[in-house]
Each structure stands twice: as C-alpha cells, then as structure tokens.
C-alpha cells in the first residue's frame, strides 16, 4: 500500500468532474475556430497532427511504463527520462551525420542503441536496485541530458540529411510521411498493449501487482520490459524531434517533458475507465498540439503558453482525481 496523501473526501459532483476536461477542450477549440477562421481547415489540422508526433511517440513510451507500473505517480510507474532519452539519441544521430560523416543507417543505429541502453539503465535501477521510478528516472534524465551536451557541445546542429528531410516533408497518398509512420507506431503499441496476451498481463501488473504475482506473472520482467520499450520509443521520437526542429537543439527536453506528461495524463482523464491508455496518450498529444497552434492563431504571446498548459494539467488532473475518488 502506498502512502499517498489522503486528506479528505471530495465535494465536487463526479458526473460534473468527468465532463469538465472534455468541455474545456471543446470550448477552446470552438473558440479558436470562431476567432481564427483558418483554424479548422485541413492544412491546419494536418499541421496539428505533424506537430503532435514527437509528443505522441514519447507519450506512448510513458503510457506503457504507467500501465505496467500503476498510475500512482510517486510509488507507481513513471518515466520522466523519455524526453531526455530522445534528446540524447537525437544528439548522437545529429552529431554522427554532421560531424562524423556517418551514413544515416549507422547514425540511427547508434542513436537507437543509446536509447535502448538508457532504457535498460532505467530498468536496472528500478527492478534490480529498487529505486522508485520517479527518483530513478528524474536522476537518469539529468545524466542523459548531460551526456547529450557532451555529444553536441551544447550547440545546435542543423541537419539537411535526406532521411530527416523526407521524414519532415515527405508524403504518402497526400498524408505527411511522419504522420503515417507515427500512426503505424501507435497501431503497434495499441495492439500490443490492448489486444494481446502480453498487454493484458502488462495491465494486470500495473493494476494490481499482487494479483499479477498470484497469476504467476513475473512482475519484474514486465516492469523492465516497460522501461526498455519506453527507451525504444524515446529513440523513435528522436527522429521526429530532429525532423520537427530540422536538427538537434539543446534545451528542448523540458518542453517535451511537459507536453508528454500533459498528453498522457490528459488521455487518462478522457478514458472511460480513467486509466492511462495508448489511445488516450495519442489523443492527449493531438489536443495539446491543437491548443498550441490554436493559441498561436489567435495571437496569444508564446510566453503564456507554458502558463496555460500548466493550468490545464492542473484543471484536468483535479477534475479526474475528484471523479475517480467519488467513484470508489
């Protein structure tokens, strides 16, 4: 039993609380549509999807860790290092392409190897050493960012490699290539987590660890796998981060972290069972992206967006926390 703070009973009506997040989002989107007529056009919608990709892919990684570890953010599963892993992998790929003349395949392979190794380090710290995931991944994220600074000397690296350019600008049947690839990743993750035997067991491990052990599941193996997979998604996200930024930029990890956490927990607030899901994380990422672009299109100062997103995290999780506690 974890020692989460139990202070008192909620007073807000649960039905109201469960509708609040969605209502806020629909109202905001409607407002953008009215204020900025171009907002609901296909070009903008495609842009929203494209901008959502890195967050969505990171969110997939986080969602799998949360599903395997349980949604108590302190005692349960959380991986705050996925964005740092993406930044590290992106730094390695960019450095290889720009400074070492490596082929795209070599560069990507090295970046991915680093991402998997980083995921393995997290897995080791959590399952072998026994650190809480929050502490472990908070600590490793500083180390991964530190390493990425060593790789790039903390400078921006511009890339014009065909791989990155294709991922950024290419299309398949009129849809951006990035969106198609990301959709494939989402489908794989969804099937693995929500439609397969392995996924059901993963959910059981996170839902009630004792129940999983009684069912004969090797809990630590699932936890370790979840961190490895999160590392892999961090590696995958690095390509999209490079494509979105046309190269590697220092200091993007913090923004990515906020958007990843926001998207994933937003998704839980929308899910019927009020748990973190693969689809929820993706939907959350798209909504966050829509908001960023929406606020831009109605002329809100870019400095305010952090404020607004932080406020949204709070409103959504407060509403969801109240709804969840009212149910039980």
């Amino acid at each position: 039993m974890s020692t989460t703070l139990a202070i008192g009973r909620p007073q807000l009506n649960s039905a109201l609380a469960s509708v609040v997040p969605l209502a806020i989002f629909l109202a905001l989107l409607g407002y953008f549509g009215l204020r900025a007529p171009g907002f609901l056009e296909p070009a903008t919608l495609i842009l929203i999807l494209k901008q959502a990709i890195p967050t969505a892919v990171l969110g997939l990684g986080l969602a799998i860790v949360v599903i395997a570890g349980g949604d108590d953010v302190v005692a349960g599963g959380i991986d705050l290092s996925v964005p740092s892993i993406a930044v590290l992998s992106a730094a390695i790929i960019a450095d290889q392409l720009a400074s070492h003349g490596s082929s795209a395949a070599t560069a990507v392979a090295l970046g991915f190897a680093a991402a998997i190794a980083a995921g393995a380090a997290n897995a080791l710290l959590v399952t072998r050493v026994g650190m809480t995931p929050l502490l472990a991944t908070l600590a490793t994220s500083t180390a991964y960012i530190g390493l990425s600074k060593v790789v790039t000397a903390n400078r921006r690296i511009d890339l014009a490699d065909p791989l990155i350019v294709t991922l950024r600008d290419g299309t398949v049947l009129g849809l951006p290539l990035g969106v198609v690839v990301a959709t494939g990743l989402v489908a794989i993750a969804h099937i693995a987590v929500h439609r397969s035997r392995w996924g059901l067991r993963l959910q059981a491990v996170g839902g009630n660890r004792d129940a999983a052990e009684i069912a004969g599941l090797k809990v630590h193996r699932f936890l370790a796998q979840s961190f490895l997979i999160a590392g892999a998604f961090g590696g995958a996200a690095s390509l999209f981060v490079l494509a979105r930024g046309s190269g590697s930029t220092p200091g993007v990890a913090e923004t990515l972290l906020m958007e990843m956490v926001l998207a994933t927990f937003l998704g839980a607030a929308f899910s019927p069972r009020r748990v973190v899901t693969v689809w929820g994380a993706v939907l959350g990422a798209i909504l966050v992206s829509a908001l960023s672009i929406g606020f831009g299109s109605v002329g809100v100062d870019v400095f305010w967006t952090g404020c607004i997103k932080g406020g949204l995290i709070l409103i959504v999780v407060a509403a969801s926390a109240l709804a969840k506690r009212n149910r039980t």
Binding site: L200, R201, Q203, A212, A215, G216, L217, V275
Partner: peptide, 20 residues
C-alpha cells in the same frame, strides 16, 4: 481479493491463461 479494479470479469478470470 487482489483483483485489478479496471479489468472486466472475463479478463480477471483468464489472466495468465488467456485465450488468444
């Protein structure tokens, strides 16, 4: 009881020996 609250009855009963 050690059951997963957000699982269905069928998912709970077959956990570990799922029909696939």
């Amino acid at each position: 009881l050690n059951l997963v609250p957000h699982f269905t009855v069928a998912e709970t009963i077959f956990l570990g020996q799922e029909l696939s």
